[in-house]
């Protein structure tokens, strides 16, 4: 049995929309083990993105405890949170969120730049990822010159360039055609086989069911937690 990577205990998160309170997380407890492949499914507005944001330390719960690799990260200062996001967590988004002015390589190196990694080390790491993800010939292209699948591969390279422990993907295939989407999923699964903990939020049943473990979120609660043996 692998040790726990993410431990959420009794997490609550409430948003105020207009004059209504929306309970996006309602006493959620969840443990994700190191190297696990978890998909989070559920209808729109069910709170699955909130769950991912909390896991990614982009959002802080109103109550409950979050242990990342056994360390309590629930009440940390901005600077520490930023540092953990940088080193431990990789993000992939539906809309890629690449910076249009930067080339593929510069986009990949961005987290290293923020972490203050030296130029030669940055180049070494980005080169090896460009090579591995089949982007070697595209390294000097800007996002607008790349296809959707290529953009998402750049985004994945950016997410893993700091060698994080967890990869969090929010609808990574939502903006791609089926073929590119499959490529992206295979790429993420390959990274997962190498030991990276993978959490994917998706609508797509096909992708959702490929994960070894699937949870379903409805109205801020985990309604289903299914592990494929």
């Amino acid at each position: 049995m692998q040790h726990a990577m993410i431990q959420l205990q009794d997490i609550c998160r409430t948003f105020v929309v207009g004059d209504q309170e929306v309970r996006a997380m309602d006493h959620v407890s969840l443990t994700v083990r190191q190297g696990e492949y978890l998909s989070i499914m559920g209808p729109s507005g069910s709170g699955k993105s909130t769950l991912l944001n909390i896991m990614g330390l982009l959002d802080t719960p109103d109550s409950g405890t979050y242990l990342l690799e056994g360390k309590d990260v629930t009440r940390l200062q901005d600077k520490e949170l930023a540092s953990i996001r940088n080193r431990k967590i990789g993000f992939i988004f539906q809309f890629f969120h690449l910076i249009p002015r930067l080339t593929a390589r510069q986009n990949i190196e961005l987290p290293l730049l923020l972490a203050g990694v030296g130029k030669s080390e940055r180049q070494k790491r980005s080169s090896s990822l460009l090579e591995r993800f089949g982007l070697a010939t595209r390294s000097h292209h800007r996002p607008e010159e790349l296809s959707g699948g290529q953009r998402q591969r750049v985004a994945i390279a950016r997410a893993v360039v700091t060698r994080p422990a967890v990869l969090l993907a929010d609808e990574p295939t939502g903006n791609l055609d089926r073929e590119s989407g499959n490529e992206i999923v295979e790429l993420m699964e390959e990274l997962n086989r190498d030991g990276l903990t993978l959490v994917v939020v998706t609508h797509d049943q096909n992708i959702g069911t490929r994960a070894r473990r699937t949870i379903e979120v409805v109205d801020g609660r985990i309604s289903l937690d299914k592990v494929v043996p």
């Binding site: 990614g56 982009l58 901005d78 600077k79 930023a82 540092s83 953990i84 996001r85 940088n86 080193r87 993000f91 969120h97 910076i99 961005l110 987290p111 923020l114 972490a115 950016r158 700091t162």
Partner: peptide, 16 residues
């Protein structure tokens, strides 16, 4: 906004 948000997600602290 999106780029700044992204940089924060990628681990940029307020100071940066």
């Amino acid at each position: 906004t999106a780029e700044i948000g992204l940089c924060k997600a990628l681990g940029a602290a307020r100071g940066q």
